[in-house]
Write a protein that binds this DNA or RNA. Structure first.
Length: 463
RNA sequence: GGCCUGGUAGCCAAGCGGAAAGGCAGCGGUCUGCAAAACCGCUAUACGCCGGUUCAAAUCCGGCCCAGGCCUCCA
């Protein structure tokens, strides 16, 4: 039984999809005006874990990740560079997709762009106008939150306590009530970005795209909607309001939000100089799989404190994990140890049990490490066979459908080195240790480390 | 000001009422011809601080301190 913490009910609840064995999932995606930073990727990695784990548990997942390619920041960015909005956002979409691949983020089934769904947004706004939930003011269209009594149910916000003032953009758009939010922004000459539509000349507000696109691809009511905690209010609250008023139906059953990432215990910001994009870290030589692992290994609802030190630790973990995975290959014995299979199955059960519990990844990982320890004991005692190798590797590959941290390297050694290794094994058998050590040192200088195991000598490349 | 998180060993991080998972780093040992790897042991009488509830608290309650988030377009 899978349980998720639902922001809407503030409780852990059993997950029951609307349609058996199918999950309709909407994950808030990027606004493509700049490179995504690791804080953003924390959210995307959480969404990736959710996606992969649901599939691991046998669900067919239909997932949408929106791309916000029209908003104040993208318009401004394009204008600054004197290029079209399309050209500008295309560039960042391309980089984003590359970054996703580097971090092994599973591609959603749909990645709709806001600018390609103006028609759907207009339809939705028309519906809200017809039903009296929206009103025109100076050619912009606003949603009237006073018409939706349950406004605030997601964030638990008390409207009467909303501070009116500093952060309200008073001069730009006139609203009846400062707490109302904009559905459609009247065209502004200086922006140069607008669409001629039935509801007027203008461009969409931010919230409406997610409602329009999620409903288009997932239906008027769907299973899961995710994002960062900062999206709870106002973004997701507004999505609920506009969607439920338009359809008269419940919008989303489960709302999942991930906590923020901190850097050295502080909020990441450009002025503090603790701002990292994925590219920054790659340029420093960090292993992207370690970045993935680090962002993955803390529970999604807990704040994650990112430091380069912890990233180095993650690199070591990933290195050890993969050396274990690779290192089993040396064993080609015919013998079979039935205990291994039992341990694997126990581990698999615990792995599932933990992740079923609101994606509780840390203990799930600890069970895998405990298995590795047990396998190492049998392995070094010589109580291991090639069928066991296969079993263990298959298990790690199985959980890797969720974790994606195995680095499958096809590494080859030149013939002459392989011959040296053979020579050394003969020397060792003849107790000619001087020669054996010489060969080992020669190879070490070439960056090849030899390890003698009960099953023969294995090698690995060292950095 | 209102609402909400987190503060567990050198570092990262689980546990959330009944004898402190796991990872990384370090030290000592076992194995090994020697290494490497692995394994074993040691590194939190203790979970931000102070009180309280309880037979029993890291876990519940109150207060305080620190860090962070949201309060109209930030994942």
């Amino acid at each position: 039984m899978i349980k998720f913490y639902n922001t809407l009910t503030k409780k852990k609840e059993e997950f029951i999809p609307i349609e058996d064995k199918i999950v309709r999932l909407y994950t808030c995606g990027p606004t493509v005006y700049d490179l995504a930073h690791i804080g953003n990727f924390r959210a995307y990695i959480f969404e990736d874990l959710l996606h992969r784990y649901l599939e691991y548990r046998g669900y067919k997942v239909i997932r949408v990740m929106n791309i916000t390619d029209v908003d104040d920041k993208t318009i401004k960015g394009a204008k600054n560079e004197g290029i079209s909005l399309r050209e500008f956002t295309d560039r960042y979409i391309k980089i984003f997709l590359e970054d996703m691949e580097i971090l092994r983020l599973k591609k959603p089934d749909y990645m709709p762009r806001a600018t390609e769904h103006i028609k759907e947004m207009v339809e939705l706004i028309k519906k809200l106008l017809e039903k009296g939930y929206a009103y025109y003011k100076d050619n912009s269209i606003y949603f009237s939150i006073s018409k939706f009594p349950s406004y605030g149910k997601l964030s638990g916000i008390d409207l009467s306590k909303i501070k009116v003032g500093a952060r309200v953009d008073a001069d730009e758009y006139e609203k009846q009530d400062v707490r109302d939010f904009v559905l459609w922004k009247a065209a502004k000459e200086e922006e140069g970005v607008w669409w001629e539509t039935e509801i007027g000349k203008g461009r969409p507000g931010w919230h409406i795209e997610c409602s329009a696109m999620s409903m288009k691809y997932l239906g008027e009511t769907f299973d899961i909607h995710t994002g960062g905690v900062d999206n709870i209010f106002p973004h997701h609250e507004n999505e609920i309001a506009q969607s439920e008023c338009a359809t008269g139906k419940k919008f989303v059953n489960y709302w999942l939000h991930c906590a923020h990432l901190l850097v050295n215990g502080e909020k990441m910001s450009k002025s503090k100089g603790n701002f990292y994009t994925l590219r920054d870290l790659l340029n420093k030589g960090y292993n992207p799989i370690a970045i993935r692992y680090l962002l993955l290994s803390t529970h999604y609802r807990d704040p994650l404190n990112f430091t380069e030190n912890s990233l180095k630790q993650a690199e070591n973990t990933i290195k050890n994990y993969n050396e274990f995975y690779q290192g089993l290959n040396i064993c080609a014995e015919e013998k079979y140890n039935p205990e291994i299979k039992k341990e694997i199955e126990k581990t698999r059960e615990k792995f599932i049990e933990e992740l079923d519990n609101d994606l509780n990844i840390s203990p799930a990982l600890s069970h895998i490490f405990n298995l590795i320890k047990k396998v190492n004991i049998y392995f070094s005692k010589g109580e291991f066979g090639k069928q066991n190798v296969k079993e263990v590797k298959e298990f790690l590959e199985d959980v890797d459908n969720v974790l994606c941290i195995i680095e499958k390297k096809e590494e080859f050694l030149p013939e002459e080195y392989l011959n040296l290794i053979k020579e050394r094994e003969i020397a060792r058998k003849n107790k000619n240790y001087k020669k054996a050590d010489e060969i080992r040192n020669i190879l070490k200088e070439k960056g090849i480390l030899l390890e003698d195991t009960p099953y023969g000598t294995r090698w690995k490349k060292i950095g």
